[in-house]
Lab assay of single mutants.
Amino acid sequence: GTEIELESKNGQREHYTATSEDEARKIIEKAVRRGIKRIELRGASEQLIRDMQEIAKQIGLQYRTDGSL
Rank of each mutant, 00 (worst) to 15 (best):
Gly1Asp: 09
Gly1Gln: 11
Gly1Ser: 12
Gly1Lys: 13
Thr2Arg: 02
Thr2Trp: 10
Thr2Ser: 03
Thr2His: 04
Thr2Gly: 05
Glu3Val: 10
Glu3Tyr: 14
Glu3Lys: 10
Glu3Leu: 11
Glu3Arg: 09
Glu3Asn: 08
Glu3Cys: 12
Ile4Glu: 00
Ile4Val: 04
Glu5Asn: 10
Glu5Ala: 10
Glu5Phe: 14
Glu5Gly: 07
Glu5Cys: 14
Leu6Trp: 11
Leu6Cys: 06
Leu6Gln: 02
Leu6Gly: 01
Glu7Asp: 03
Glu7Tyr: 13
Glu7Gln: 08
Glu7Ala: 04
Ser8Arg: 11
Ser8Gln: 09
Ser8Met: 14
Ser8Ile: 12
Ser8Lys: 07
Ser8His: 14
Ser8Cys: 13
Lys9Gln: 12
Lys9Ser: 12
Lys9Arg: 11
Asn10Leu: 07
Asn10His: 08
Asn10Gln: 05
Asn10Asp: 14
Gly11Leu: 02
Gln12His: 10
Gln12Asn: 08
Arg13Lys: 09
Arg13Glu: 03
Arg13Ile: 11
Arg13Tyr: 09
Arg13Phe: 11
Arg13Ala: 04
Glu14Thr: 10
Glu14Leu: 11
His15Ser: 10
His15Met: 12
His15Trp: 12
His15Tyr: 14
His15Asp: 01
Tyr16Pro: 00
Tyr16Asp: 00
Tyr16Gly: 00
Tyr16Lys: 01
Tyr16Val: 04
Tyr16Ile: 05
Thr17Leu: 13
Thr17Val: 12
Thr17Trp: 12
Ala18Ser: 08
Thr19Trp: 12
Thr19Lys: 11
Thr19Met: 12
Thr19Gln: 13
Ser20Cys: 04
Ser20Asn: 11
Ser20Lys: 04
Glu21Cys: 06
Glu21Thr: 07
Glu21Arg: 05
Glu21Ala: 07
Glu21Ser: 06
Asp22Val: 08
Glu23Met: 07
Glu23Tyr: 04
Ala24Gly: 02
Ala24Cys: 05
Ala24Glu: 00
Ala24Val: 08
Ala24Ser: 02
Ala24Ile: 07
Ala24Lys: 00
Ala24Asp: 00
Arg25Ser: 02
Arg25Ala: 03
Arg25Cys: 04
Arg25Glu: 00
Lys26Tyr: 11
Lys26Met: 12
Lys26Gln: 12
Lys26Cys: 11
Lys26Arg: 11
Ile27Arg: 01
Ile27Met: 04
Ile27Thr: 01
Ile27Cys: 04
Ile27Val: 04
Ile28Val: 07
Ile28Met: 06
Ile28Gly: 00
Glu29Leu: 14
Glu29Lys: 06
Glu29Pro: 00
Glu29Ala: 14
Glu29Asp: 08
Lys30Tyr: 14
Lys30Leu: 14
Lys30Ala: 14
Lys30His: 12
Ala31His: 05
Ala31Tyr: 06
Ala31Thr: 02
Ala31Trp: 08
Val32Thr: 04
Val32Ser: 03
Val32Leu: 15
Arg33Cys: 14
Arg33Glu: 09
Arg33Thr: 08
Arg33Trp: 06
Arg34Phe: 06
Arg34Asn: 13
Arg34Ser: 07
Gly35Ala: 04
Gly35Gln: 04
Gly35Trp: 04
Ile36Cys: 10
Ile36Val: 11
Ile36Phe: 11
Ile36Ala: 07
Lys37Gln: 09
Lys37Ser: 08
Lys37Phe: 13
Lys37Pro: 03
Arg38Tyr: 14
Arg38Ile: 05
Arg38Thr: 05
Arg38Leu: 05
Arg38Gln: 05
Ile39Trp: 02
Ile39Lys: 00
Ile39Gly: 00
Ile39Arg: 00
Glu40Ile: 15
Glu40Asn: 13
Glu40Met: 15
Glu40His: 13
Glu40Ala: 14
Leu41Ile: 11
Leu41Cys: 03
Leu41Trp: 02
Leu41Pro: 00
Leu41Asn: 00
Arg42Glu: 03
Arg42Tyr: 09
Gly43His: 09
Gly43Leu: 03
Gly43Trp: 08
Ala44Trp: 03
Ala44Gln: 02
Ala44Lys: 01
Ala44Asp: 01
Ala44Phe: 06
Ser45Lys: 02
Ser45Asp: 03
Glu46Gln: 11
Glu46Ala: 13
Glu46Gly: 05
Glu46Asp: 09
Gln47Leu: 08
Gln47His: 05
Gln47Trp: 05
Gln47Ala: 11
Leu48Thr: 04
Leu48Trp: 03
Leu48Phe: 07
Leu48Gly: 00
Ile49His: 08
Ile49Leu: 11
Arg50Met: 07
Arg50Leu: 08
Asp51Gln: 09
Asp51His: 13
Asp51Asn: 06
Asp51Cys: 09
Met52Ile: 15
Met52Gly: 00
Met52Thr: 08
Met52Arg: 00
Met52Pro: 00
Gln53Phe: 13
Gln53Pro: 03
Gln53Asp: 14
Glu54Gly: 05
Glu54Trp: 10
Ile55Gly: 00
Ala56Ser: 04
Ala56Phe: 14
Ala56Asp: 01
Lys57Glu: 10
Gln58Ser: 11
Gln58Arg: 12
Gln58Trp: 06
Gln58Glu: 11
Ile59Gln: 14
Ile59Trp: 15
Ile59Leu: 15
Ile59Tyr: 15
Ile59Asp: 04
Ile59Ser: 15
Ile59Lys: 10
Gly60Glu: 10
Gly60Asp: 09
Gly60Arg: 05
Gly60His: 06
Leu61Ala: 08
Leu61Gly: 04
Leu61Thr: 03
Leu61Asp: 04
Leu61Met: 07
Leu61Arg: 04
Gln62Ala: 07
Gln62Cys: 15
Tyr63Asn: 09
Tyr63Lys: 06
Tyr63Met: 15
Tyr63Gln: 10
Arg64Val: 14
Arg64Met: 15
Arg64Ile: 15
Arg64Cys: 15
Arg64Gln: 15
Arg64Phe: 15
Thr65Trp: 06
Thr65Ile: 12
Thr65Asn: 12
Asp66Glu: 07
Asp66Leu: 04
Asp66Gly: 05
Asp66Ser: 04
Asp66Arg: 03
Gly67Met: 05
Gly67Ala: 05
Gly67Asn: 07
Gly67Gln: 05
Gly67Thr: 07
Ser68Val: 10
Ser68Gln: 07
Leu69Pro: 08
Leu69Cys: 14
Leu69Gly: 06
